[in-house]
Design a protein around this nucleic acid. Sequence first.
DNA 1: AAAACAAACGTTAATATGACGTTTAATAAA
DNA 2: TTTATTAAACGTCATATTAACGTTTGTTTT
Lengths: 245, 245
Amino acid sequence: MKSKEILNLSVDCVVFGYDTNTKSLNVLLIKRYLESEDKSEILVDDYVLTGYHVYQDETLDKAATRVLKELTGLSHLYKKQFKAFGDPDRLTQAKDLLWIKNAKFDKRTVTIAYYFLLKTEDVDIANNKYNARWFPVMDLPELGFDHEKIIHEAYEDLKTKCLAEPIIFELLPDKFTINEVQDAYQSILGIEIDNRNFRRKLINKKYIIPLDEKQFGVSKKPAKLYMFSKDVYEKMFQKNYLINI
Amino acid sequence: MKSKEILNLSVDCVVFGYDTNTKSLNVLLIKRYLESEDKSEILVDDYVLTGYHVYQDETLDKAATRVLKELTGLSHLYKKQFKAFGDPDRLTQAKDLLWIKNAKFDKRTVTIAYYFLLKTEDVDIANNKYNARWFPVMDLPELGFDHEKIIHEAYEDLKTKCLAEPIIFELLPDKFTINEVQDAYQSILGIEIDNRNFRRKLINKKYIIPLDEKQFGVSKKPAKLYMFSKDVYEKMFQKNYLINI
DNA sequence: AAAACAAACGTTAATATGACGTTTAATAAA
DNA sequence: TTTATTAAACGTCATATTAACGTTTGTTTT
C-alpha cells in the first residue's frame, strides 16, 4: 500500500526579460523579507522567483500562466515547462531553516518550473504590487531556497533553445535592427559574432522581413528595421535534420 | 492561506531500447490487467509505463533510478527528466474511470517523467518479474492513463537531443559499425541518409575510434568495428555555437 | 565642408554538404 | 577453382556555408 504523504505542489516562474538598450538578459525577482515576531531579528532578506501553490482543479500550465499574469499583467508569452524540482530537502537548507521553522513549508514541496520570454520594457515595474525587480542574469542577488539553481537550469535550457529555434525574437521588439539581434545572441550566449557574416546570414532568411523604415533619434547613421514573420517561418519550415555531434 | 491538497507524487520511466538487429527503437511496457471482484468484468487490459510513488525521503532522480533498477536490473544508464505531468484530470479519462473508482487514485497524481536509453538486448526480458515487454515506438499497444502522450513527448525530446549530442551511442553496443549508427539515426529520426556522406562525416570525428576488429559470422564482407570515446569527445569538445534557425 | 562612425556591402579561402560513381573484399553459388 | 553477388569502403565534383577579413556608404556632429 502506498503511504500518503502531504505534499505542496507549486509552480515557479523564471521570467526572462531582455533589454535591447543595455543588451542585458534579466530575471524578474521579488523580495523575500521576514522579521521575527518581536522584530528583533531578520529571518530572511533575499530574492526569490515568483511562484505559487497550484489550485485544486488547475492544470500546471494554467497555474504558471496565472502566476505570470499576476506578476506582470501579461499573457500569451513564450512559455516553457523545463524542469521539476522536488527533492525532499530542497527548501530546508542552511538559512532557509528559519523560514521552515516558521511552519510555512513543513512538507516536501514539488515545484514545476517554467520560464517565460519577454521584453524588459513590457513590464510596468513601477506599479508592480510585488515590488518585483529586474536583475541581470549574470549578476543575480542573494537568492532564497534553491532558486539560483532553478534560474541557472532555465538559462542553460534557454541557451540551447536559442541555437535551434528563432525564440530570440520573443525577446526583441517587433521592429528591430540586425545589430540588435546580434547583440541579443552575443549577450545571451556569451560569445562574439562577426557582424558582417551574421548580417548576411540573417538577411538571407525569408522570414526576416525588411521594412521601409529606419531607426530615428540615433546619433549616427540610422539602421534599417526588420521584423520576424512567424508565419513565413512556419510555412517554409521543414525540420532540418542536421546531425551536429 | 494555502489549502493543503492530498497529492500523489510519482515518477514514470520511459525506457527506450534500441535493437541493432531489427533496427527498431522500442519502449518497455508492463501489462495492466484488472478484473472486477466477482471476475465478471475486465476493468482494464492495456499496457503502461513503469512508475512508482516517490518515497518520503527520496529525491526524484533516485526514485526514477530505483524504478528502473527494479524493472531492468540496470543502473548507470543515460537518464533524462524531461517533463512533469500533473493536470488534475490526467488519470480520470474515459475507461480509466473504472480504475479510479477502484480507489487507487482518488487524488491528483503528479508524475515526473524520465526517459532512459539502453540496448534492448541488455534487459533480460524472460526473467522480468513484471512481465515487461518491448514494443516498437512506432507500433505501440493500447496504453493506459496518459502514457501514450508521455511516450510521445519523450520521443520528441529524444529526437531533438539526438541531433545535438552523441547520445545515439547510448543505444548501440560498445563496438559498432558505421552502418549500424546510420541505421539507428534513420530509424529514430525517420529519415534516409546517404551512406557515403554519412560514413565520411562519422569517420572524420576524432572520437569515433576505429578498432582492429571486424564483424564475424556475417554472410557478406564483414564491416570494420568502431567505438565511441566519450573521453575524447568531452576533452576536444567546445560548444559549437552554430545558430541554426 | 570635414570629421567621425556605425551601417551596409564585398571578397576570398577553407570547410562542409549533397548527390552521385567506382572499387574492394568477403561469402555463396556455379 | 572460378564466378557471381553484395555490402563495405573509397572517390569525385558541384554547390553551399562559414570564417576571416577589407571597403564603401550615409547620417550626424563638429
